[in-house]
Structures are given as structure tokens and as C-alpha cells.
Design a protein around this nucleic acid. Structure first.
Lengths: 361, 361
DNA sequence: ATCTCCTGTGTAATCGATTCCACGAGGAGG
DNA sequence: CCTCCTCGTGGAATCGATTACACAGGAGAT
């Protein structure tokens, strides 16, 4: 493969001049410039990014360590990250942690070895020594979706509290009083936050969240199935299962179907993270939708700001509720179809229409 | 960040010795080795992969240019590719072409500039000059799923003909005679092959495939919707729609639902590519399942063979039919529930049970 | 006409590793 | 005791770019 020396020879100039043309440095004569360009075209020369990176100490590549590529939420996130990065002139190298801290560390280490300019992470755990070390060492870094508390690293994420409150209002309005949640790993922020938001919203309606109604999941489908089976085995099973991510909702659907029960007649189901398939499941699933694409783009902008010496900002975007049929039918107003006395209590929060979308496929 | 020189100084040896220890070259004394190892640990030294790559002319990275990351089939493929690559000591850099040839070229160029050791591609088109040039220039390359004819590049893919024949047998047995297909872009191999396999299987049953029953799609959901609407507007609409990939099937489901029609009562639906969500759609979708994970692994093995000087082999694995409810109910035998006279004609191919799976969720 | 200053260009150092080659010490064989 | 290997080691070249520095030559100022 042709190198810069070949181009220089072909154009009858020095390598310095070739380099200057390539990086359009001002002081090159029009004549030399055109000869170099001609030589580049003739030889089909492409600069060696490896050599360039060694010299300039920048790779123009971003590392993205994602919790689970098979989760459509993260797939969409990855896609938007790549798009924005490309627009800003960066490539993205993806590492899939598969919700495993050891794999996550493997990828972080590999990416660091490859000297990526910055790291975008949605941690699968509470923070390994490696990650803490990298953050402290000053590696440009941004957390997306999940984060590790106590580190001075910008976080780009969605705040689901409002939408979860809307969801609880919706469920309460339908007359449901025994509500259960399948949580993610407590070591992740999204694992614990979603439970807390749910519990707080329930409290506003005077409804408690007993321990038996908090299932332990790991954001994978199989754990959703197991947690749901445990719920169904309870002497008094819940009327609603809220899964903290879409894959666990899938598992819950499996478990419910396996018992021959129907959604929403026998039990209601809702999920965190909205995905295109929820429109087509049987029944369509009510979900809390994150502005996924916007999160990915904001995360990249924050990271690139950090890399290029500007001050990065943390970003929190609101999630919103998308009502479908999996929790029961409701009329246009969304209230009044439940059991007698199921209206919102005095002092209960208003549900801004802007945050709730009724989806009737 | 500490470099090899710092390690050498710390250990009291030369950089050459440090390098030898790191690459476990035989001729290093046990004493020097342990001093170097201690220094490495003390400084937290990690070799700079960029510098190493420049010198050795290998990056131990593979490029994967995928047609569409949002398509769960490709997501799963990407995942298995990364797994196998990691097992063999390689990283994977993914580029998402979004079914756009220009984006595909962008990624191929970027990956080549970064001097990846080899390229795994599922072409979004019939072959751009850039790709042909790269293949001819001797870049280690393997095609996966789709390929470009006329190039001496190994291909790893699934052969869907048997499964499509099984599908047609299933549909014919259910009494369907007007069968339509939503094809992918003719420029892709999977775009044209699947239509041909379908047409050939129909011919075995004496059924034709009129032009009006061949919809033009681009492997994206929206095109599936449009093609389906066109089918439904026909004076004599088809009884079955077979979508050549899962996203177009999703679009078809949308279009059918939008007309207030039901699957399979009003119209039957089948898809190429099986995905986890098809179990939970309304109704569960009958699909041709590819051995996706095995394809990804085989593709990586072929590419690494090529890179490391062994002779790579093309691989073709059989797909199989997974019967669910979207084409109509059928009894255990899968035959005889259709209209009178709907049995398989004499000489029609046998349906090996091993290739057909009945899925009753 | 001489002195500056500016523009365009080339030479060479540099980034952080790998690796060829030379060399000294020490053991084996004669 | 001398020669010849082998083993362990270090010096220096190398990979392909970027860039600091030096410098030649022409324009403009005095």
C-alpha cells in the first residue's frame, strides 16, 4: 500500500509538503497543492490512521461499552451514538458487556489500550476498580443511561419519575391495588431508581410495595420469567407486573402465557423502555418511553465537548408514558373505568397530557 | 501514561528486554523477567496498541459492516461475531450501513484507513467500486448472509431453499393458493434469492407467482407496509403475504392491522428470519429461522483463517421452518385441514420433520 | 542598494513499540 | 588453554505519519 513517501516522490515534493496539503495547512503554493492532489489520486493513497494516531495522540474514535446489545433499547442507543459521532468526525468502537462486569472490564481495557479518545459507558455494575481508575486518571468519559455515583463524570440519562407516576395513576385509575415490580440489579442505578420511583408513586396513592412484590431480575428475559412465576405462586398474586426493562417484560409475558393466563384480563403488564415490537405483541404493551435517540446524541456531544476541551454538561431528559392495552381498557379520559372508588385521591399529582400518549394501533 | 521506556528504567533493563518479556520471547533470564513484570505491575503499564500496530502492521481488529443494526437478525449476528472474535483474540469494529450503499462505503473506507486486519461484510448493494477494489487489493474479506457475485471472497450464509419449500408445503396444505412475497432489493443476493426460492417452490405445486404478487421492499418496515397496502388494494388480494425479512413483516402486520383485518383469518403472514419477538406478536409469526449464531461464528473463523494464512472455506448452513399461528391453524400432521383437494400433489417434496418445528407458545 | 519580513519548502526529530544485529560472558569440546 | 556455541542483553533502525526548525528567495521599506 502506497505511503506518504511514494506520494511525495510522485509529486516531486517532500513528505512535509504532502502532509501539509492533506491537513490543509495554509502555507502551500497552489502549484504544489495540485501536484500533490494529483499524486494522491493517481496512487489511490489513503493516510495510515494508525501512524497518524501515534504521532498526534488522538484516534478520533469513541468507545461505547453497552450493557447488552440484544436489548433493543441499547441497540437504538448505539445507533444514535454512532450517527452523532459520525457527524462530528468520530468513529465508534462498541463493546458488549452482556450485563457481565468481567466482560465490561475486558472491553474497557481493550478500548483504553487502543487509545480511544473517549469512553461512553452504561455500567453493568457499581464500578470496577478499572473503571474508577480510568475515571480518576482523567480519561474523557461520559455515563449514559446508568451511572456510577461519586465520580466526577457527566451523566446523560432519562428521568422516569414523572412517567412512572403517570403509570401508577393510570393503573390506580383502572382499579389496580396490588402492584408488583421486577427490578434490575441493585448495583445499577436504573436497577434501584426505578423501584424507588415506583414505590414513591404508589405511596402518593397510599398503596404500599411489600417485599414479596419486588422481584429480583438482571435485565434479561429469563430473570423476568422467574420473577413472574414467583409472583404468580404467591397466595395473593399481584394484579399488575411492572418490568423494569423490556426484556424482563418479555420473560414475564412468557411466564404468564405458560400458565394459560391472559393479559390484561387475568393480570396487567407494563414495562420500562418502549420498543417498536410492543405495538405488535399480544396485547400491545403499555410502556415508559425514553427519548433514546436524543440521549445518545446528547451523550456524544458531552463526550466530544470533554475531549475537545470544552466543559461537558450532564443532561437529564424526561421519559413519558405510552398507554396501550396491556393494563386494561380505559376510556379517552383514562379515568373512571375502574372499580368504584378508584378515582385519584385528593392531592394526587396531575397527569400532564404532554407526558402521556395513548396509542391505539 | 507510562511507556515502555519507563518500565525499562524502573526494571533496570533495556526496552528490548521489556518488549521480549511482554511478548514472551524465550531468551530472557528468569531474573530479568521477574524484574520487568514487577515494574509493569508497579507502574500499571499497558502497551500502546497503536504503536504496536504501526510496527507489526496488524491491529488484531476485525471490521464488521452490517446492513442494519436495528434489525434483530443482524444484531444477533453482530453479537456472535464479537464473541467468536474475542475468543480468537480479536476486537470487532462495527459499522452500520442502514441499508445505504453510501454509508456502507463510508464505513469500509474508515475501517480500511484504520488498518483492520480483515473485513466482514453483508453488502447493502451489488458492490461499489470501493468494495471491488478492496477485494482485488487482497484485503482479507468474508461475506456473511449476503454476498457479491463474481468475487473470489468466501461466503458464509444460510440456504433457505429447503425451509421455503417447507413453508410453501405448509401453506399449500392449509389450502392457500394465492401467495405473495415482499422482496428485498434486487441488488442484494438475499433480495433476489428468496423470491426465486419461493417461486420455485410454488412451481412444484403448480402455483404461479404473478408480478402483482411480488412487492418491492428494501428490508425496512416502512416498505413492508407499503407493499402490503398495494397487495390489499388488488382486485384479488393474496391469501398469504411472505415477507423476505422480519422488519418488512412488521410493516405488513401494521398495514393489515390498519385495515382492521385479522391474521390469519383474513390473511396469512410468514417471514424470513426468526426473532424472539415473533413468539409474542399477535398472532405468533411463522418464520424461516437461520442459524444466526453459527453463521457469525463460522464467518469469523473463515476470516481469521484467511488473515492468519490458512485457506478459508465458504460455509452454507440450512435454515429451517418454525410454524406458528400466523398462517392458520393446522393439526399435528400439518396436512388435511385445508380445503378439499389441498393435499400435496404426487411428486411434491417430502418435508423432513427435522427441518420443521411446530412452536406452540 | 541594503535590510527586513514573509512565504513556501525541505530536513530531521518524534510518537511507542518490535526486532535485527552485535557483543560479552560462560560452558562444552578438543 | 583455546575455540566455538549458546544465551541473554542492549543499541539502533524501523513502521508512517506530523511538525519544529532552518533556510532560500522575493517583495517591500528605508
Amino acid at each position: 500500500m502506497a505511503g506518504i513517501k511514494d506520494v511525495a516522490a510522485e509529486a516531486g515534493v517532500s513528505v512535509a509538503t504532502v502532509s501539509r496539503v492533506l491537513n490543509d495547512h495554509p502555507s502551500v503554493s497552489p502549484d504544489a497543492r495540485s501536484r500533490v492532489l494529483a499524486a494522491v489520486a493517481a496512487l489511490g493513497y489513503r493516510p495510515n490512521a494508525v501512524a497518524r494516531s501515534l504521532r498526534t495522540d488522538q484516534t478520533r474514535a469513541l468507545g461505547l461499552v453497552i450493557s447488552d446489545v440484544l436489548n433493543p433499547y441499547f441497540t437504538e442507543l448505539a445507533r444514535s451514538v454512532e450517527e452523532e459521532a459520525r457527524a462530528l468526525g468520530y468513529s465508534v468502537v462498541i463493546g458488549n458487556a452482556d450485563e457481565r462486569p468481567d466482560l465490561q472490564d475486558h472491553h474497557v481495557r481493550t478500548l483504553l489500550d487502543r487509545r480511544i479518545d473517549g469512553l461512553l459507558v452504561s455500567p453493568a455494575d457499581g464500578g470496577s476498580p478499572l473503571m474508577l481508575e480510568a475515571a480518576r486518571a482523567g480519561t474523557p468519559m461520559v455515563f449514559v443511561d446508568r451511572w456510577i455515583p461519586g465520580l466526577d463524570v457527566p451523566v446523560v440519562r432519562a428521568d422516569g419519575r414523572g412517567a412512572v407516576r403517570d403509570l401508577v395513576a393510570h393503573l390506580h385509575g383502572l382499579g389496580h391495588r396490588r402492584l408488583a415490580i421486577i427490578a434490575g440489579p441493585a448495583a445499577t442505578t436504573t436497577g434501584s431508581e426505578r423501584v424507588e420511583a415506583f414505590r414513591a408513586a404508589l405511596a402518593e396513592y397510599g398503596v404500599g410495595l411489600p417485599d414479596a412484590y419486588v422481584g429480583q431480575g438482571d435485565f434479561q428475559a429469563e430473570s423476568g420469567r422467574r420473577a413472574t412465576e414467583r409472583f404468580l405462586d404467591l397466595p395473593e398474586p399481584p394484579e399488575v407486573v411492572f418490568a423494569a426493562d423490556n426484556l424482563m417484560a418479555l420473560g414475564a409475558l412468557d411466564a404468564i402465557r405458560a400458565r394459560g393466563m391472559r393479559v390484561p384480563e387475568d393480570i396487567a403488564l407494563a414495562a420500562f423502555d418502549d420498543i417498536p415490537w410492543f405495538v405488535h405483541t399480544d396485547p400491545p404493551v403499555t410502556a415508559v418511553a425514553q427519548p433514546t435517540g436524543e440521549l445518545g446524541r446528547a451523550a456524544v456531544r458531552a463526550l466530544v465537548d470533554r475531549i475537545e476541551g470544552r466543559t461537558p454538561r450532564s443532561v437529564t431528559l424526561p421519559a413519558r408514558l405510552v398507554v396501550r392495552r396491556s393494563c386494561g381498557e380505559s376510556d379517552e379520559g383514562g379515568e373512571g373505568t375502574g372499580r368504584p372508588g378508584a378515582g385519584a385521591p385528593a392531592g394526587a399529582p396531575e397527569t400532564p397530557a404532554s407526558r402521556v400518549q395513548r396509542s391505539t394501533p
